[in-house]
Amino acid sequence: MCGIVGLFLKRDELRPQLGDMLTDMLVKLTDRGPDSAGIAIYSQPGEDMKITVQSDTPEADFDGLDGTLSDALGTGVTMRVVGNHAVIRVPAASGAAAVAHLETRGLRIMSAGTSIEIFKDVGLPRDVAERFGIRGMGGSHAIGHTRMATESAVTTLGAHPFSTAPDQCLVHNGSLSNHNNVRRRLAKKGVRTRTDNDTEVGAAYISSRISEGASLGEALEGTLSDLDGFFTFVTGTRDGFGVVRDPIACKPAVMAETDDYVAFGSEYRAFADLPGIDTARVWEPEPATVYFWER
């Protein structure tokens, strides 16, 4: 139960403003979710793997972490600490080993990939965005979420977006009704989830289908038959983002498109400050229909 915003830039000149624009959009929807907030932001894909981790005791955990990790992997490591998150950059070939090492140190993996960074925490969108300096971040596309938890815990890990594969993420407004069975089926296939959150199951379902060879479009189509309950999903990948609503489609969703961007919002309010919104094409995504924008 939440507010979702998404912004996919078509014009490169706007890229430096992405974090600023998305933060404005997200703060507008604060009322839809006072518990926690999170942002997935995608920048130009590089050669390296970026791993975003979170710690409840960042001073202790992040102190000298880059050196320790560098020694363990036998390769160069850079680290940028942002509040209780750190973005760690390692050569792509060492990515999996780095994630494993960071997990054994008790750090929570928010995201990994060549482009994605995820920042999330409990609190209001304004405070969370401030904590991580989201306004100053640039990129090609981004997804934000503000959460009113239904049945799972209000924690950093329980906040959206959920990332269950490199450069993929998912946010959700609604409530799934068969996620426990889906979680068990995924677990049998070796797909791990970290929380009791229904959305994480949705994310893991999509990642699992993709890893089995499905396209993102096919995986999103699959949510319509395999996931039950109410959902508006927005999913991000390295190259774009997609939207799908359940067949009943009673959780709100609005989209806007201009020559400069495609925007998603749970409510129109989120768009009020976007440039050119008065002449944008504004519409509601149809139920049980997959939408996708890719560069």
Binding site: C2, D31, F230, K251
Partner: peptide, 14 residues
Amino acid sequence: CRHPDWTGPDDLEI
């Protein structure tokens, strides 16, 4: 069984 013009706590707030 459901209200005709809202679903879920985020809408209920409005």
